[in-house]
Write a protein that binds this DNA or RNA. Sequence first.
DNA 1: TCTACATTTCGACAGTTAACGAAATGATCT
DNA 2: AGATCATTTCGTTAACTGTCGAAATGTAGA
Lengths: 114, 114
Amino acid sequence: MRDLIKIFKALSDRNRLRILKMLEIKPLCVCEITEVLQLAASTVSKHLSLLRDVNLIMDEKEGKWVNYRLNRQEADKYVKKLLPEMILWLSSDPTILKDRDKVKSVDRHKICSG
Amino acid sequence: MRDLIKIFKALSDRNRLRILKMLEIKPLCVCEITEVLQLAASTVSKHLSLLRDVNLIMDEKEGKWVNYRLNRQEADKYVKKLLPEMILWLSSDPTILKDRDKVKSVDRHKICSG
DNA sequence: TCTACATTTCGACAGTTAACGAAATGATCT
DNA sequence: AGATCATTTCGTTAACTGTCGAAATGTAGA
């Protein structure tokens, strides 16, 4: 029961849902997500580690960046069931749509160091 | 997005999950649920009104009792998708199994006024 | 109407959580 | 090695949440 509760808690936050919906489009690094959400980097990092703890996302190092992406493979049965639903949900939410536009145009080389 | 977050929040609590799993067996009144969960009646009442607010459950007056049951009909698309999943989940959780035994033997006439 | 009891509402308190900035860590490049 | 930048960790603060008991509400029956 504890695992399931942790997954629901992870999904109970507006910004974490926005992150998941952004990662549907493509893997992103922390600074790209920070740029879209307009939150402190430390806050975004914390959200990401929480999402990773419940196996909703995975991380992968690439040079000085850490790319995060949805975990569609090694997830447990709850995540395997919930992640595909999330893709169907919120697809017409105004905030999600705006985030999607921003994600498509972000370039980490411009945003993160500049 | 707000509605979905509220549903996930409702599902993020151990005692609310226990309530939902109990209601899978049969409709129950507040005092029966209170007896199984061993919480204050006011706490149980609050959990139930929260679950009702997000359309996971419905209430129905029956004399001095209020029966609560799962909402399988008028629920929105999120609840319609999540409730059937919940039935598959947690079915071997020790606490859920104990609760199930208790629910099957509770009798509101003995428990509530006695 | 009065009593009994199921339920809900209210007020208070403890524990949790999301947010920030500052400091620490890790990696790349000169 | 030192500089730079992305990321994480830490400490703090404000807001939220689950819990309780007491009081209020609503219903059934004497």
